[in-house]
Amino acid sequence: MSISQGGEAAATAGTARVRAVLAVKPRWGERAVLGSLVLCALLSVATTVAIVVALLEPTIAFFRHVSPIEFLTTTEWSPLFSDPEFGVLPLLSATLVLTAIALCVALPFGLGSAIYLSEYASPRTRGLVKPTLEVLAGIPTVVFGFFALTFLTPLLQDVWFLPGDPPGVFNALSAGLVMGVMIIPTVASLAEDAMAAVPHDMRAGSFALGATKLSTTVRVVVPAALSGIVAAFILGVSRAIGETMIVTIASGGTPNLSFDPAEAMQTMTAFIAAAGIGDQPTGSVGYQTIFAVGTTLFAITFLMNMLSVRIVRRYREVYE
C-alpha cells in the first residue's frame, strides 16, 4: 500500500482504510481481530435488547390495564395504595428537578476542577488531587444519601434564608446537591483527560501570539477538547438521571408534583428501587408499574442521548 493511499484513506479513519488494506492481501489475523472486536461492540446491543425484552412484557401488560394517556397526564402517583392513581408526572418532575440541581453543581465545578488540574496545577498537585477526586467517586451512594439526610438537611434548615418554608426532613435540595458533588469526579476526570490530550503546540502557538493564559484556555484548549468535555457532561447527566440510592434516602418516598426544591419528592428511580425491593407479588399491577416507569426512564434517556450525539457530531473539532 502506497503512502499516498494511506494518507488519503486516513482522512476518514474508517472502513475505507481497513478495506484498502484488506483488499490488497487478506490477512486472516486481521479479519479475526475485526470479528472479535465487532462482537464486543455487539454485546452492548445485546444488552439493550435484553433490557428491552425484560421490560417490555410487563409494560405492555400494564398499559392494557391503564391507558397511556392516563399514565402521562394524571398528576397523582399512588399505584400501590388501595385506590390507585397512575399518573407518572410527579415522578417525572422530581427526576427533572433533582437532575437540574445536581447538574448545576456537577457541570461547572467539574469542568472548573478539570481546567485547573489540566492547565494550572503542577504535575505533583495533579498527581495528588486527581486520585483524591476519584476516591470521591467510589464512596458508596448509600453513604452519600445518609450524609445528605443527617448532615446537610439539618444544616440547610439552620441557615435557610430564602422565602418559603425551610426544607423538611426529606427534600430535593439536599439530595440534589450531594448528588452533584458525587458526579463531580466523573465530569472532572474525563474532561481533564480530554484537555490533557490537546497537543501542546496549540497552547504554545497561542502564547506565542501574545494571548494570556485565560484566553488560551478558554479559546483554544477547551474548544479543542470539546468532544471529550461534552462526553464527560453527557456521562454526568446520565449518572444524575439514573441515580437511585441518594434520592431514595434523602429526597424521600412521597411522590409530589412540585418544582420547589425544599419539598420532598420521589423520583422515578426511587420509586423503582422502593417497589422493586419490596413486597409486590409478581404479576400484579403494582409489580408492573415498576416496569412501566423503567420503560419511561429508558425512553427519555434514549431521546436525550440521540439529541446530544447529533450536537457533539456537529461541533467536534478535529485537529491534525
Partner: peptide, 28 residues
C-alpha cells in the same frame, strides 16, 4: 464507518445504557 447508521445507533445505544438505573440491570 461512522457514516453508517448502524454504527451511530451503537453509539447512542451505549450512551443510553450509561443512564439506565442500576436496579434495571438487576432485573436484567
Amino acid at each position: 464507518d461512522r457514516s453508517r447508521r448502524w454504527n451511530r445507533l451503537i453509539e447512542v445505544n451505549i450512551q443510553n445504557l450509561a443512564a439506565v438505573p442500576s436496579i434495571v440491570y438487576g432485573i436484567l
